[in-house]
């Protein structure tokens, strides 16, 4: 799953370690999410959304946009 975490973090001039502290997770967790090696759990995704004050779907993109059958 793609995400804008690296961009959002850079806009705030936070290091991975600073973001990890704010989320109370390890720096490895932040790095794994940013590089797409790990999709966060729903509680952690909500935590990220609250921290960046934006909806989850603006941070994460599952690549399914436009493929809805409506």
């Amino acid at each position: 799953m793609n995400n804008k975490l690296k961009v959002l973090r850079a806009m705030r001039n936070w290091s991975q370690a600073e973001l990890a502290d704010r989320l109370d997770v390890s720096r490895q967790a932040v790095n794994a999410i940013e590089t797409g090696k790990y999709d966060p759990s729903l509680p952690l995704a909500f935590k990220l959304a609250r921290l960046f004050e934006m909806p989850i779907e603006e941070i994460f993109d599952d690549g399914q946009e436009g493929s809805k059958n409506d």
């Binding site: 109370d24 997770v25 390890s26 490895q28 967790a29 794994a32 999410i33 790990y38 966060p40 759990s41 509680p43 952690l44």
Partner: peptide, 14 residues
């Protein structure tokens, strides 16, 4: 182990 599992984040849990 009991303390460890209460302390790890979800990345490490996975």
């Amino acid at each position: 182990i009991a303390i460890y599992h209460r302390a790890i984040d979800d990345h490490e849990e996975r």
